[in-house]
Amino acid sequence: SDPSEDRAPESARVGNIPSSTSALKVPQLKVAESAQGPAAAHTTDTAGYNAMEESVSREKPELTASTERVNKRMSMVVSGLTPEEFMLVYKFARKHHITLTNLITEETTHVVMKTDAEFVCERTLKYFLGIAGGKWVVSYFWVTQSIKERKMLNEHDFEVRGDVVNGRNHQGPKRARESQDRKIFRGLEICCYGPFTNMPTDQLEWMVQLCGASVVKELSSFTLGTGVHPIVVVQPDAWTEDNGFHAIGQMCEAPVVTREWVLDSVALYQCQELDTYLIPQIPHSHY
């Protein structure tokens, strides 16, 4: 159930021909089969995070001529859309010479989310990475209204306002976009420790780096000194050995919190207090 199309920051360009055919990675995205229709094609874990990302398996898109002007500035990904909605975005992107990729990268400028009429969405990996990267996180209605009015409308009017977990109007995407000089995790050293489900560890690490944190791979690698705040992030329900995560405190002095601390902080683009996310640790033995 991992969102495989989000696994690594590679891009698939639509609308320009790469210098070599080997560089072309066409979105071959799968549809989750469901008797209840597209709305039930998501699996949500206890964290309220949509693990099964969206989309559609299609034939290789038709490439435009390399001489045609390509908008190098805009690059989009989509999240939560049905196959039909994805194809509408594809046509919109081609019309406006926008790069459409299946994986979010540093070059991505827009994340197009499936939302309700009030621009509230589910939480997906692309949603988190879009906010963390200060990108435009907009409703699919931006595409449909632009098509209806036959011009590209202003993104401000379609920015995602909230999500089904953290609140319907928290304005996290807007706050992140306007606060890239004040990253929420700066001054923190974060170790993403142990197993994680539904989200590859490297993507979680990239997320906290985008928010200004330094990533530490091992508990023994924390910088011990003033001005640096170490934090260990774990996902308790992913551990097979009972309560192993309670013993992390015996290996390092850092506070240990659940992954929800990261996800909530990123969604709201406000660093949350650790208290409600802390995992009790077995104290050091004193002999």
Results as ranks from 00 to 15, higher is better:
residue 130 G to P: 01
residue 281 Q to P: 04
residue 12 A to H: 15
residue 37 G to V: 07
residue 269 Y to K: 05
residue 283 P to L: 06
residue 145 Q to G: 01
residue 186 R to G: 13
residue 262 V to C: 09
residue 108 T to A: 05
residue 18 P to T: 08
residue 56 V to F: 08
residue 100 L to S: 08
residue 283 P to G: 03
residue 90 Y to P: 06
residue 198 N to M: 05
residue 84 E to Y: 10
residue 57 S to T: 05
residue 30 K to G: 13
residue 254 A to M: 11
residue 82 T to F: 04
residue 60 K to E: 05
residue 262 V to Q: 04
residue 258 T to V: 05
residue 271 C to K: 14
residue 279 I to G: 03
residue 229 H to K: 09
residue 171 Q to C: 06
residue 108 T to S: 13
residue 33 E to A: 08
residue 141 F to Q: 15
residue 24 L to I: 13
residue 226 T to K: 06
residue 86 F to H: 02
residue 62 E to N: 01
residue 207 M to L: 14
residue 82 T to H: 06
residue 122 E to Y: 10
residue 279 I to K: 10
residue 147 I to F: 12
residue 287 Y to R: 07
residue 36 Q to V: 12
residue 18 P to S: 07
residue 7 R to A: 15
residue 56 V to A: 12
residue 106 E to V: 06
residue 31 V to E: 14
residue 164 V to D: 05
residue 255 P to G: 00
residue 192 C to S: 05
residue 199 M to T: 06
residue 89 V to Y: 02
residue 97 H to S: 10
residue 233 V to Q: 02
residue 281 Q to R: 12
residue 49 Y to H: 06
residue 196 F to N: 05
residue 189 E to S: 03
residue 104 I to S: 06
residue 136 W to V: 05
residue 113 M to F: 02
residue 198 N to G: 13
residue 227 G to N: 10
residue 2 D to S: 03
residue 227 G to V: 05
residue 116 D to E: 02
residue 8 A to I: 07
residue 148 K to P: 02
residue 160 V to Y: 00
residue 271 C to G: 06
residue 103 L to D: 05
residue 42 H to K: 06
residue 11 S to A: 06
residue 153 L to I: 04
residue 283 P to V: 09
residue 34 S to Y: 04
residue 67 T to P: 11
residue 133 G to V: 03
residue 30 K to V: 13
residue 35 A to I: 06
residue 271 C to P: 10
residue 54 E to V: 09
residue 86 F to V: 10
residue 21 T to R: 12
residue 271 C to V: 05
residue 43 T to L: 06
residue 38 P to N: 07
residue 119 F to G: 12
residue 181 D to Q: 02
residue 4 S to T: 10
residue 279 I to V: 12
residue 239 W to G: 09
residue 173 P to A: 10
residue 28 Q to M: 03
residue 164 V to S: 10
residue 5 E to H: 09
residue 66 S to P: 08
residue 221 S to K: 12
residue 101 T to G: 04
residue 111 V to T: 02
residue 155 E to Y: 12
residue 133 G to T: 03
residue 22 S to T: 02
residue 117 A to T: 06
residue 186 R to H: 13
residue 193 Y to T: 05
residue 27 P to A: 13
residue 40 A to G: 14
residue 187 G to R: 11
residue 57 S to D: 08
residue 34 S to L: 04
residue 215 V to P: 15
residue 135 K to I: 07
residue 31 V to K: 12
residue 285 S to L: 13
residue 258 T to P: 07
residue 170 H to C: 02
residue 119 F to R: 09
residue 11 S to H: 05
residue 246 H to V: 08
residue 244 G to C: 11
residue 51 A to S: 11
residue 254 A to F: 15
residue 115 T to Y: 00
residue 152 M to V: 08
residue 257 V to S: 06
residue 16 N to C: 07
residue 26 V to M: 09
residue 108 T to N: 01
residue 172 G to S: 09
residue 201 T to P: 08
residue 245 F to R: 05
residue 31 V to M: 12
residue 74 M to R: 04
residue 166 N to S: 04
residue 268 L to W: 13
residue 117 A to H: 14
residue 93 A to T: 13
residue 91 K to I: 12
residue 25 K to S: 06
residue 37 G to F: 05
residue 82 T to R: 05
residue 86 F to A: 06
residue 256 V to R: 02
residue 32 A to I: 14
residue 45 D to S: 03
residue 164 V to N: 02
residue 257 V to T: 00
residue 116 D to T: 05
residue 178 E to I: 08
residue 59 E to R: 09
residue 44 T to V: 10
residue 274 L to V: 11
residue 73 R to G: 12
residue 283 P to W: 15
residue 8 A to T: 07
residue 147 I to C: 11
residue 226 T to P: 13
residue 159 E to C: 12
residue 267 A to S: 15
residue 109 T to R: 00
residue 168 R to K: 01
residue 282 I to M: 13
residue 54 E to K: 14
residue 129 L to T: 01
residue 122 E to R: 03
residue 151 K to L: 11
residue 101 T to S: 14
residue 236 P to L: 10
residue 234 V to T: 09
residue 102 N to L: 03
residue 255 P to D: 14
residue 98 I to E: 02
residue 254 A to W: 12
residue 195 P to I: 12
residue 23 A to F: 03
residue 167 G to V: 01
residue 99 T to C: 14
residue 33 E to Q: 05
residue 102 N to W: 04
residue 116 D to S: 02
residue 266 V to L: 05
residue 31 V to I: 03
residue 270 Q to D: 01
residue 138 V to Q: 00
residue 127 Y to L: 00
residue 222 F to T: 15
residue 98 I to A: 11
residue 246 H to S: 12
residue 200 P to L: 14
residue 113 M to P: 00
residue 16 N to V: 07
residue 155 E to Q: 11
residue 51 A to R: 08
residue 52 M to S: 10
residue 238 A to W: 03
